[in-house]
Simulated assay, not measured.
Amino acid sequence: MARKEIEIKTADGTARAGLFQTGNGARAGVILYMDAFGPRPALDGMAERLASEGYMVLVPDLFYRNAPYGPFDAATAFGQEDSKAALMALLSGTTQEMTVRDSGAFLEALAKEGAGGPVGTVGYCMGGARALNAAARYGDRIKAAASFHGGNLAGDAPDSPHRHAAGIKARVYVGSAGVDRSFPPEQSARLAQALRTAEVDHIIENYVGMNHGWCVPDHTAFDAAGAERHWRRLAGFFGETLRG
Rank of each mutant, 00 (worst) to 15 (best):
G117M: 02
R229G: 12
G236H: 09
T22Y: 00
Q21K: 07
S83M: 11
S176P: 02
I168W: 08
V174Q: 08
V57D: 00
I203E: 13
G209E: 11
H230L: 15
L132K: 05
S182L: 14
W214R: 00
V216Y: 02
G150T: 08
A157N: 07
P68M: 14
G139E: 07
A129F: 04
P60K: 12
A221C: 10
G244P: 08
Q96G: 12
L87H: 04
P39A: 03
G79A: 02
R3Q: 11
Q80M: 14
T197D: 14
D180H: 13
F72A: 09
H212C: 06
E81N: 03
I203A: 13
A235K: 13
P41S: 06
A105T: 05
T14P: 00
G70C: 07
G178C: 12
C125D: 03
E7P: 01
V30K: 04
Q80R: 15
W231S: 01
G93R: 10
S83I: 11
V119N: 05
Q193N: 01
A74V: 03
T121S: 08
I6K: 01
G116S: 03
G155W: 01
T241Q: 11
L43H: 08
T22S: 04
V200S: 06
A51G: 04
C215P: 06
R3G: 01
Y55T: 01
R229N: 12
R141S: 06
E108K: 09
A85D: 13
D223H: 07
H230N: 10
A134D: 09
A194W: 06
I6Y: 07
T121E: 02
L153C: 06
K9R: 15
G127Q: 07
D159A: 12
M126N: 05
H162K: 00
V172I: 11
W231I: 00
R27T: 02
L195I: 05
L87D: 04
G25K: 01
L153A: 06
G239H: 07
A2T: 05
V57R: 02
D73V: 01
A165N: 03
A51P: 09
A89E: 14
R190K: 08
L132R: 01
M98A: 15
K84T: 07
H202P: 00
A198S: 06
A47W: 08
D12I: 04
L50P: 05
S188L: 13
N66M: 15
G29V: 01
N206H: 14
A115C: 06
W214F: 14
A157L: 10
L58K: 03
A86D: 10
E5K: 11
V216F: 05
V30I: 15
H212L: 06
K84M: 11
T14Q: 12
F20Q: 00
M56E: 01
D223E: 13
E205T: 13
D201C: 10
S83P: 03
R196K: 13
N206M: 15
K169N: 10
A77T: 11
R40A: 11
H202D: 02
A17P: 00
G13Q: 07
S147Y: 10
T10W: 06
T241S: 15
P161C: 14
N24M: 06
P185G: 13
R27W: 04
L32M: 14
K143R: 15
R141C: 04
P118E: 04
F106C: 01
L242M: 10
D73T: 03
L234E: 06
C125A: 08
